[in-house]
Structure formats: C-alpha cells, structure tokens
Design a protein around this nucleic acid. Sequence first.
DNA 1: GCATGCCTGGAACGAACGTTCCAACCAGTA
DNA 2: TACTGGTTGGAACGTTCGTTCCAGGCATGC
Lengths: 173, 173
Amino acid sequence: MQRQGYEATGIKQISQQANVALSSVYHFFPSGKQELATEAVRHADQEFADIMREALATEADPAEAMIAVTQVLAEYLHNSDWLDGCPITATALETAGRILDIQRAAAEAFEHWRALVAEKLRHTDIAEDDILDLAHTVINTLEGAELAAQVSKSAEPLEIAGRHLARLINSYR
Amino acid sequence: MQRQGYEATGIKQISQQANVALSSVYHFFPSGKQELATEAVRHADQEFADIMREALATEADPAEAMIAVTQVLAEYLHNSDWLDGCPITATALETAGRILDIQRAAAEAFEHWRALVAEKLRHTDIAEDDILDLAHTVINTLEGAELAAQVSKSAEPLEIAGRHLARLINSYR
DNA sequence: GCATGCCTGGAACGAACGTTCCAACCAGTA
DNA sequence: TACTGGTTGGAACGTTCGTTCCAGGCATGC
C-alpha cells in the first residue's frame, strides 16, 4: 500500500506475497480490507516513527537533526528505486473522506510524528507555541519533499528541504 | 481522480458523471484509462496554475503572497468538505514507478508551479540560486500542508505553512 | 436527396476484485 | 486415544473492472 496505494493493492496479492492463505487474512482481519489497511497504517506509523527517532538522535542540534532526517529519507527512497516514500501518504489521500477509520489512523500517525519533532525542538529555548507550529511545518515539508523526490526521482527536494527547515528553526533562536 | 485517486476512479464512473457515452471516452482517448489520466493531470496542472497565479497576484510582496495562497487553498479545501486538495497528488503517488506517462506529467506540473513561485520571487533582491531552492520548498510545503489539512480536516496546517514560508523568504533579504 | 465522415448507444468479453463458505488439518490437553 | 480450538486449502459467489465491437444516428458536404 505504501507503493501502490489502497485500491491498487489486492488482498489476494497481499496473501500471496506474504505466503499466507487468503482465509488466514480474513481470519485475522474479519472486517476485511478496510480493517487490514487501518492496521497497516498503524503499523507504518510505528515503523516510520522508529526511523525518524533514530535519525533525529544522530545530531544533538535540532536544526542539524533535520538535515540528518532528510538524508535518511533520501537514502530509503534511492535504495528502493524511488518507490518507498512516506508509507501512508498514498493510502491516506485516496481514502480521505471515504473511509473514516483509515483517515483517523493517518491523522494519528501525523500527530505522532509531529510529537517526535516537537520533543527534539524542546532542547532549545524556542517558545512552546512556536515549537508546535514548527513541528507542523517540519512534518508537512518532509511529506511534500518526499513526494516531489519520488515523482522526480531525485534527492534534491529532500536536500533543499533539510537546509530550509534548519534555517527556519534557527530563525527562532 | 483528485478525490479518489487513479485506481478508485472508474472509466464508467467518469462517463456517467460527465453524461457521456462510454464509447465516446474511448473514442477520444483510444489508449484507454492511462491516456485519460495523463491528460487529466495535464489539465489539472493548468487549472491549479491559474489558481496560484491569481492568488500570488493579490499581494505585491512575495512573502505576503504566500499567505494569500495558503488562504485560497484553505478555502477550496473547506468549501469542498475537505475533499479537493492538490488535484494530482493522489494520482501521482499511486502511479509513481508504475505508469511512467502519468509520473512524467505530474513532474512537469510540479515544475510548472515552481516556475510560478520563482517568477514571483524575482521581484526581490534574492539571489537566483536561492530563489530556485525557495520555489522547491514553497511548493513542497504547500503540498504537505494541504495533505495534512485534508487528513485532519483543519485549515491550521495551511495557515502555519503560510506564515513559515513568508518567514523563510524574508530571511533571505 | 444522397453519400461520407465522425460520434454514440448498448451489449458483450475475459479478468480481477472482495468476500464467503466449509471440509480438512494440526497443534494442544485430558 | 479422543477431543477441541484455532488455522488453512481451495473452490465458489456476485460484482465490477477496463476494454472491444458494431450497428445505428446524425450532422456536413456535394
């Protein structure tokens, strides 16, 4: 779903790629595809949070840490032939306004990731209100840059985003 | 496709909603769905460019103009019950790496929109290299903020993005 | 009025979709 | 050994998908 989105990903395709019986999928996700997708988004939430947490920890300075994050994301993207961008964006977008469970799970994921960034920014003397705003823009700019990088098959949007986010953060202290 | 993405949007659904015979769709788009989607992306490219051009023109100062753009985007989003975000993101993401024509059309759209922003920024004394970088981040942050606004059904991400983009631009002069 | 294009209506195709069902299976425990 | 719970294999359901085909309509040109 990260690569193809919700609709293009079939349950049979999932069961085959996982070497698992189709019945088993319906055994563990009785409500079908929507339940599976919701859990997939929640799983991707945790997985992506781990990646970000680790990348943020490599640099003590929050501004520098942003650059580290964009570098890690660029690596993942490049190593997967520009296929593995944000794990939930595609699914979130095409189900927005149609499948509320998935939309809610996606909203919670963004909130979760924002909290990680905010946590990192609290090691500065930036005011709490500004920190919360910055966390918004950091995640949103990363999302947009990852999308652009994927579509253009280039790491440049992510590199630029890293530098600009660092500059924006530094402008608050 | 703006609302549902590529896979979830059927050709029959399109022909019905357009009050047009299914045969007519295949008459004008002989190569089928992929060709139709590619043209749809190109059309959305122009349409979105018009919206941005108009919004950018409402404010003489480029930094202020960014806030105007986010306000306009927030309006569109709110008026459509948070359904009409960026017209190509969903389609671009789920076809990335799978349908090259669509991916190319999407990349050209982003390039087109960046050029509009760069054009506006040339009314300042910012160095050309910085202008091109800023255009990248402006579009990418708008994309990310629009996604977040749509998923969270709130205009807040766009409002914050507008303020931060203005601040970032002003930091260059 | 008649012929020559382009366009449409409607039916049909095979394939894939999500989902359901049930018999068979295979741990465990007693 | 017998039983019981959870898990699987495989076939089948109806529906929808993208696509194809062709006879008919309907203007425009002579």
